[in-house]
């Protein structure tokens, strides 16, 4: 009798493991710049916050709350995650190009930066490049959407002229809606008259 109960328990445990046996581990790692973020790990049974680097929680089933976070041994971090961390893609590069007022003419410093941008695109191959146009808040909103689009298209063409494949360049226009420096409406601002080039 005792034996059969034991067997029944074993079978129940096996069935439970098959259904919910997907044990997960979640660890908060330091950012590449050394700062530390914050995560919340939650299911129906409970939740834990982690805001210190190298603390990990284990979740055994949707019915069991995530375990209290504990430090993970560095050797274990390396064994479990060393390779994925080593294979992390590089952070995208962001360049800012600046323009004359109400114009698609690049300022001289920005024009000189094009060479560096082209080299970066070639070094990052395979890549995808976004060219995002912006204006300051001078003038009409709708006009500015078109001006920032013309600025972005101009930069795209300058990159194509320097040998970059057009298929890898996306053009986006943000008009005056996404300023670098917040200003009231109808304020000229050289910083905000820009195209941002993102190289991934």
């Amino acid at each position: 009798m005792k034996k059969s109960i034991l067997i029944a328990c074993c079978l129940a445990a096996m069935a439970f493991n098959m259904a919910c046996g997907k044990k997960s581990m979640v660890m908060l790692a330091p950012d590449p710049d050394g700062s530390v973020g914050r995560i919340t790990v939650a299911n129906e049974a409970g939740s834990v916050d982690i805001d210190q680097a190298n603390l990990a929680t284990v979740i055994r089933s949707p019915e069991a709350a995530p375990r209290a976070p504990e430090p993970l041994d560095p050797a274990k971090v390396e064994a479990l995650f060393g390779q994925v961390v080593a294979n992390q893609p590089l952070p995208p590069l962001h360049f800012r190009l600046h323009f004359e007022s109400d114009s698609v003419r690049l300022l001289p410093d920005s024009r000189r930066q094009l060479t560096e941008i082209v080299e970066a695109i070639e070094a990052r191959s395979p890549t995808r490049v976004s060219v995002v146009g912006h204006t300051d808040t001078m003038g009409d909103k709708v006009y500015n959407v078109q001006l920032s689009l013309r600025r972005a298209i101009t930069v795209r063409q300058l990159l194509i002229d320097r040998g970059i494949d057009a298929a890898f360049i996306d053009v986006v226009s943000h008009g005056q809606e996404n300023p670098l420096v917040k200003t009231p409406d109808n304020v000229a601002n050289a910083q905000n008259r820009r195209v941002e080039v993102v190289i991934r």
């Binding site: 790692a29 939650a42 299911n43």
Partner: peptide
């Protein structure tokens, strides 16, 4: 068995 909410930035998951 759970969902992670992320306020930043670097998370390792297995």
């Amino acid at each position: 068995a759970a969902t992670i909410g992320v306020r930043g930035t670097h998370v390792l998951i297995k």
